[in-house]
């Protein structure tokens, strides 16, 4: 395959960037999108140019490191992560636009790499359960109904890649935050911190400069793990419940 790439190049966080055009040839349809970028980078290195910086790690679709907006879509045209997107999803001769996640809370570090520490701080604000350390507890001591376990797992699937923020017209982190809130709210282990968790996480989300939800639904469409839009509804419900209860104490 022969492709024309228009890639966002930006030297550093505080410099201006622009789209640069590159021609790549001899691309196999079986290559992943990242492997295609590897081919481009090998050539750039041989030519003495600065290779395109992009985030990646496991390349198995489970770590959430890769983060590219391809032709205006987070993770590209398929519902998967960029590393699991294959070149067969494109046609020979295509022009492909590659941009970084765009959000005020995700500043560009270099080229296609953005700083997603804001997500870490949201998790630090309450996306955990406080447990005494020691030997593993007896599994049967805390029964979890199957339906609750399934619900929790569906939300625990979030890999924190940030595609929801990238796709959202408001740069909102509602889907990400709601995945963790819903995941822990339904489990007995998460119950003691149920109210403080949602209040603190939403407050941190706002403090990081993410936008608000207008229920456009772009996040759930972009999510490679299929976190549903109704997850946000669930978090709103949790937040209102916690606000009502917080007033009583």
């Amino acid at each position: 395959m022969r492709l024309t790439l228009r890639v966002w190049r930006q030297r550093a966080a505080d410099t201006d960037g622009a789209l640069s055009t590159y021609e790549v040839d001899d691309i196999s349809p079986d290559m992943s999108f990242l492997e295609m970028l590897d081919v481009l980078n090998e050539r750039l290195i041989l030519e003495g140019e600065d290779p395109v910086a992009f985030d990646h790690d496991c390349r198995e679709g489970i770590c959430g490191a890769c983060s590219l907006v391809i032709n205006g879509e987070a993770h590209g045209p398929e519902r998967t992560t960029t590393c699991q997107l294959h070149m067969r999803s494109f046609r020979d001769g295509d022009t492909i636009d590659v941009e970084p996640w765009r959000a005020a809370a995700f500043p560009v570090v270099k080229d296609l790499v953005v700083d997603r520490s804001a997500f870490d701080r949201i998790i630090q604000a309450g996306g955990y359960v406080s447990v005494p350390t020691g030997a593993a507890p007896e599994a049967h001591a805390t029964p979890v109904p199957k339906a609750d376990a399934d619900f929790a797992f569906e939300h625990a699937e979030c890999i924190g890649c940030g595609a929801c923020v990238a796709a959202c017209p408001n740069g909102a982190a509602m889907l990400f935050t709601s995945a963790k809130v819903n995941h822990l709210a339904v489990l007995p282990q998460g119950a003691p911190e149920r109210e403080t968790r949602v209040l603190d996480m939403v407050a941190q989300m706002d403090a990081e400069g993410f936008g608000g939800c207008t229920l456009a639904g772009e996040c759930a469409t972009a999510c490679p793990k299929g976190i549903p839009l109704v997850s946000i509804t669930g978090m709103n419900k949790e937040w209102l419940r916690a606000t009502r209860r917080a007033g009583k104490r």
Partner: peptide
């Protein structure tokens, strides 16, 4: 205002 501030740079490839 918050939403517009949260997405200061638009995508070149819009949809």
């Amino acid at each position: 205002r918050r939403d517009l501030r949260a997405r200061p740079v638009k995508y070149a490839h819009r949809r």
